[in-house]
Design a binder for these strands. Structure first.
Lengths: 205, 205
DNA sequence: CCCGCCATAGGCAGATCTGCCTAGGCAACC
DNA sequence: GGTTGCCTAGGCAGATCTGCCTATGGCGGG
């Protein structure tokens, strides 16, 4: 897995020195002068971490964080700040940032935090991969099949063909037929496994 | 639900003025001069929130936080600090604190944070109550019954009496018998419901 | 127009579940 | 010694699941 360190800071000096220092240490680095520039270039997929200046003209670091949190955010965020203090750090961490450093900071400290952040990034990528595999299987279900799955997941006490059929207004026999297809498509063998799969999407890969 | 505001601070002046001010606003308040004193008096059950000085002689606020996190911690923690800065606040929030205020702070701000914290406390209490009800039902299962439940939960693809019986080295018929008791004791009607219950302990009350 | 996919539905046989019955062995408690 | 609770196990009947077959009708692509 290729992990990239994204640097977003409006301060040219910091951005370039940080980029150089990190590249020298072997990191893949992409740097942007503003949150807007990052969003424009960001494909929403690449794994890595984000080193984000807190106080920037235009979109602030916190706003960018919110924007990314709206999507499924895979990038652990390390804030760096010149002026921010405790309230800002509290807000950032509560919003999901993994770290918050005050300028000036030692590069060794930042590198250590980056290592932690990249570790978290790997976990998130792995978790997402698990989710996607499961979701991909669920996506192969037809509309009716998905409806039956939903009904069973939301109402696990009544999973018999009789009850599901009554709820959907179709014959129990037809529910049997759909269920067999569901089991086949999802590669499972029992309704219990279906419930388990739906409950913990990352589950069994 | 009676919610209490616990104040732990070694500074007598702050402790007493804070207690008085909060009591005047209608809060139930208990104040302690040290983390140790709090732990000695704390029953591990009462709901409320904890206003905790970060830097105290003896056990520090962070240590107390760790100690409480080891148990199921129901008390949202608001740190207050005289000397701590960004790194301390980051550590505290990452460890689960709901807020971090620097002294001096306005009482109005603290009160607002307390309200938020007490709201969180209510949610935690409600969640715990849900969990406990479910757990109480599970606790009524005998050892063998629990074993069968575990096997089904961990291995939802093979929940048939035949397979469980083979795994446990007993007759499928006996598994049937145990399972009937399990269903009766847990008040459920299908293995699917059992899986759902085990997967989301707070689930259906 | 035919083919493939989907939803519907039934038959049938064998497997499994469910509820209700009995029953022996064992350990704990009164 | 009796009672109670648990684990074991079987019988039996009715319900349900499962896999395999057929079949009809709708809908869209080639």
């Amino acid at each position: 897995m290729n992990l990239t360190v994204f640097v977003v800071d409006d301060d040219d000096a910091i951005r370039s020195s940080l980029s150089r220092a990190l590249r020298k240490r072997g990191y893949e680095v992409e740097a942007f002068a503003s949150a807007e520039a990052f969003l424009g270039a960001w494909n929403g997929q690449s794994g890595g971490c984000l080193i984000l200046d807190h106080g920037m003209p235009g979109m602030s670091g916190l706003e960018l964080q919110k924007r990314l949190a709206g999507q499924d955010y895979l990038l652990p965020i390390i804030f760096i700040t010149g002026h921010g203090g405790v309230p800002e750090s509290v807000q950032a961490i509560k919003a999901g940032a993994v770290d918050f450093l005050e300028k000036p900071f030692r590069q060794a400290v930042l590198v250590e935090r980056i290592e932690t952040a990249l570790g978290i990034a790997s976990e998130r990528l792995a978790a997402r991969e698990g989710c996607q595999k499961t979701r991909a299987r669920f996506d192969r279900l037809t509309a009716r099949e998905a409806e039956i799955v939903d009904h069973m997941v939301e109402n696990p006490s009544g999973t018999s063909s009789k009850e599901v059929g009554a709820r959907l207004g179709i014959s129990p026999r037809t529910v049997d037929h759909h269920r067999a297809r569901i089991m086949e498509k999802l590669g499972i063998r029992s309704v219990a496994e279906l419930i388990a799969l739906a409950g913990r999407p990352g589950g069994q890969g």
